[in-house]
Design a protein around this nucleic acid. Structure first.
Lengths: 167, 167
DNA sequence: CTCGGTGCAAAGCTTTTGCATCCGC
DNA sequence: GCGGATGCAAAAGCTTTGCACCGAG
């Protein structure tokens, strides 16, 4: 079977994160189970932001035998070793995002069509450093989300939730 | 009964927000029910951040007959007319905060003891404006939360969740 | 009098937990 | 083979919904 360029890149990236995850599991004396790697692979070969249920469904659709419990458990491990980032975008549900090899960024969400966009601004880091020093906090990470409505022609049409696009 | 200075200020502030809420209800052609005002009063006479359950319990303890459904419904209205702000601080539960007469601020949360602190930095507003223009979004609001650990002597002792302090 | 709002309880949804079984080490 | 990890299902926790009744306009 022929792979597209994008699929090749994803596959290579997966090989790298697999090594990182393996090292993490060994250091923490956790077992290298096939489920854990299957979940990591699924995350790194699919695109953009996702929630637990859609990841679970994707794997079920591929006839992979996993349980929600294992998905939740593995996501916690992946967040702990910085391969995945967890977001709470004002919904009552967590969203996740692969984070290895992607530069730090923040999010902008359309309240109408739920489109998610990303942006970088170094000032966020400056604020984080300054406020941490001022209030004597060791800041580990931050979450900046801008909420608004986008200009998209399509926006008002597709009011469907969970329709996600990244730039 | 004698009121303290702080209680007087709270009472005066409540009179103001009561007018704002009344105007909002009239404009939206919603009914001015006693429950709605009782909830508003409870919020503006108690301090800091709160969650739905603690607000509900507070009112129950005062023998006020309310239902959780009404609390949720009224909070939505108060958020809609900008008298209350809703936050999702990375817990699976919403936190609320009275917002009339308080200047815009962002939050800093201690991952160990759940202490919540507040800070202001005008650069956040600048970032919001710039990014909105750049990506063609009409930004309505934002959420910036810094996560870390505080220096407090007490911090590691009181690992209890939900212990909140504001500055 | 009308019908929007309320209280109560049941249902919904995401996430966590308990337990028997499985399999990495 | 031991003990951590898994799958499944049940439970937990926050929020929403359905329905009969109440009361604001």
């Amino acid at each position: 079977m022929q792979l597209t360029d994008k699929e090749k890149v994803d596959k290579e990236k997966y090989e790298t994160v697999k090594k990182i995850f393996t090292a993490y599991l060994e250091k923490q004396e956790l077992r290298k189970t096939p489920e854990r790697f299957a979940i990591l692979e699924e995350i790194y070969t699919r695109g953009g932001h996702f929630d637990v249920e859609s990841l679970y469904i994707s794997m079920k659709n591929k006839n992979y035998r996993v349980s929600r419990a294992t998905v939740y458990n593995t996501l916690d491990l992946l967040v702990a070793c910085d391969l995945v980032t967890k977001h709470l975008f004002g919904e009552n549900m967590a969203r996740y995002e692969k984070s290895y090899g992607y530069k730090q960024h923040d999010h902008l969400i359309c309240s109408e069509c739920s489109k998610i966009m990303e942006f970088c601004d170094p000032r966020v880091q400056h604020i984080q450093n300054m406020v941490g020093e001022l209030l004597k906090f060791k800041i580990s990470h931050h979450s900046l989300v801008l909420y608004g409505t986008c200009d998209d022609q399509n926006c008002t049409e597709k009011q469907q939730k969970n329709h996600l696009v990244s730039i």
